[in-house]
Amino acid sequence: MNRILKLLALLLVLAGVTTWLVTGASRGWTKTSVEVKTLDPVTGIEGITYRPKFIAGVDFLGAALGGAALLLGASFFFRKPTNNQTTKQTTT
């Protein structure tokens, strides 16, 4: 269990950091849409529409790192007994 939790924590860090980097390493909040500007040639107005696109922000990265820290912390509750503890247990 200890190893599984540590492995999950590592995977979560890797997945979080990779997603953040791949989607542009944005230092703002997570976005689920991006602005698309189109110029109207007659009026010269730049129209703004939104296209669905996921851009992971620092909140996404923080959540991934926080989740990984929690998993890592939880893994300490499932530590294997050390050699000393095993010896004590067998002698008593």
């Binding site: 703002g28 189109t38 109207d40 009026t43 107005i45 730049e46 129209g47 703004i48 529409t49």
Partner: peptide, 17 residues
């Protein structure tokens, strides 16, 4: 009818934009 009319807003605070 073209949907290009727009109003843009911006709030630039020390911690967040």
């Amino acid at each position: 009818p073209k949907g290009v009319n727009n109003a843009v807003f911006n709030l630039d605070a020390p911690l967040e934009s």
